[in-house]
Simulated scan of single mutants.
Amino acid sequence: MLFEHLGASPRIDPSAVVAPTAVISGDVTIGPDCRVLHGAVVTAQGGPITLGRSVIVMENALIRATAADPVRIGDHTLVGTLASIAGARVGEEVFLASGARVFNGASVGRRCEVRINAIVHRRTALPEGTVVPIGWVAVGDPARLLSPDQHEEIGAAQPELDFPGFVFGVDRETPDLMVQLTERYGQSLARHAEDRRLD
């Protein structure tokens, strides 16, 4: 399904294949020989998304850009089932396994592997060839790789990452943080009410 969003329509190379149940919305460019499979969502919510050549987006993956954080995915990259990329740059020949998560402002270098259910936290920079093991968390620039049992180290990195401030523009110390966050984000998402289906 193709949607115009904020006046922008997807551009899909004629050699690309997009499943009829995939959703492609807004300022999205899908390059030659790409494959976007059933249930995948590629949505440009204010910022552009560019998929290079021969990118494969597996079933039920999510790729989302914002005005502050566009998405660029390099050639010959595979985005696994249920993986998500939110406002990040992903290099060429990258493997994002099933359930991998890459957050806003992150960059994943060429030939990296982010294995099953691993996380690349926001504003994290993975150098070329880095492997994030199954379920681990990459955080910082330069990236530190932390196992899921390192709760204290992961928790200590959270204020420095400032997820609510960076992504939603709300100070973490705001007493009604979730009220402010959901109201602001809800207003932004309401722009989808004007989307127009193209196919």
Rank of each mutant, 00 (worst) to 15 (best):
R89A: 08
S147F: 07
V28E: 04
G46E: 01
I56K: 09
G135F: 13
G7H: 01
A67V: 13
E93D: 11
I119W: 11
G39P: 04
P133N: 07
G99F: 08
L2G: 05
L82G: 00
Q158N: 05
G26K: 00
V42F: 00
G31N: 02
P14T: 03
V57K: 03
F166H: 13
D162G: 01
G80L: 05
L6R: 13
T77E: 06
H192P: 00
I85C: 10
L37D: 10
M178N: 11
L6A: 09
L51I: 04
S147R: 15
R53E: 09
P133H: 09
I30V: 15
I73T: 05
V28L: 06
D141W: 08
I30D: 03
V41P: 02
A88Y: 03
A40D: 10
I119S: 09
I119D: 03
S25M: 15
V23D: 09
D195F: 03
G31H: 00
D141K: 11
G99L: 13
G129D: 08
F166R: 14
V167H: 06
L96M: 11
N117L: 13
Q187S: 11
T182H: 08
L161H: 08
G87L: 01
G80D: 09
R111L: 11
R64Y: 07
C34M: 07
R115Q: 12
R110L: 09
A16D: 03
N117Q: 10
L181F: 10
T77S: 09
R53F: 01
A61Y: 06
I73C: 04
V36A: 06
E113S: 14
R101T: 12
E128S: 08
A118V: 09
A106I: 02
S25E: 15
S98G: 12
V36H: 00
P133V: 07
A68N: 12
L189A: 10
M178T: 08
E160K: 14
G165S: 01
E92P: 01
S188R: 13
G169V: 04
A157T: 13
V170E: 05
E173G: 01
I116K: 08
M58E: 15
A156K: 14
N60P: 02
S188V: 10
D149W: 06
G91N: 13
Q158Y: 14
V167M: 06
A157S: 15
P148Q: 07
G47R: 06
A40C: 06
A61P: 10
L51P: 12
V167E: 10
T174R: 15
V167R: 04
D75L: 02
L96H: 13
H151A: 13
I12S: 01
R64N: 05
P133S: 03
R115P: 07
G105R: 03
V137M: 03
S188F: 13
D33F: 05
Y185A: 11
H151E: 14
V94H: 04
M178P: 05
G135S: 13
I116A: 11
V137E: 01
M178I: 12
G91D: 12
R144G: 02
P10T: 01
G135Q: 12
G99S: 09
H5E: 01
C112K: 06
R64L: 07
H38G: 00
P48N: 02
Q187L: 09
F95M: 12
A106Q: 08
M178L: 14
T124S: 10
H76E: 10
T50F: 03
H121L: 12
